[in-house]
């Protein structure tokens, strides 16, 4: 099925969850945060939430800022 990760199309297995998207970035999860369809997803829910067709996942990390 197709989902959007940071605005880019990604084809994933139908049993994929947030945790699988997080793992794909190959970085410890403490360095990133996740949003799903416009809502923040706390780290403790990564393993519980399964994805569905068309879901929009945002993955962010620290960036220089003023």
């Amino acid at each position: 099925m197709m989902v959007l990760v940071n605005g880019k199309k990604r084809v994933i297995d139908s049993n994929f969850g947030i945790i699988d998207i997080v793992k794909s970035f190959k970085v410890e999860k403490k360095y990133l945060a996740v949003g799903l369809n416009g809502e923040f997803v706390p780290k403790q829910l990564y393993s519980e939430i399964k994805l569905k067709e068309g879901d929009e996942i945002e993955v962010v990390s620290p960036h220089p800022g003023g």
Binding site: F25, L32, A33, E58, V60, S61, H63, G65
Partner: peptide, 10 residues
Amino acid sequence: VALRKIGDNP
């Protein structure tokens, strides 16, 4: 600091 979409070497 800010947060932005994840890039290389996050």
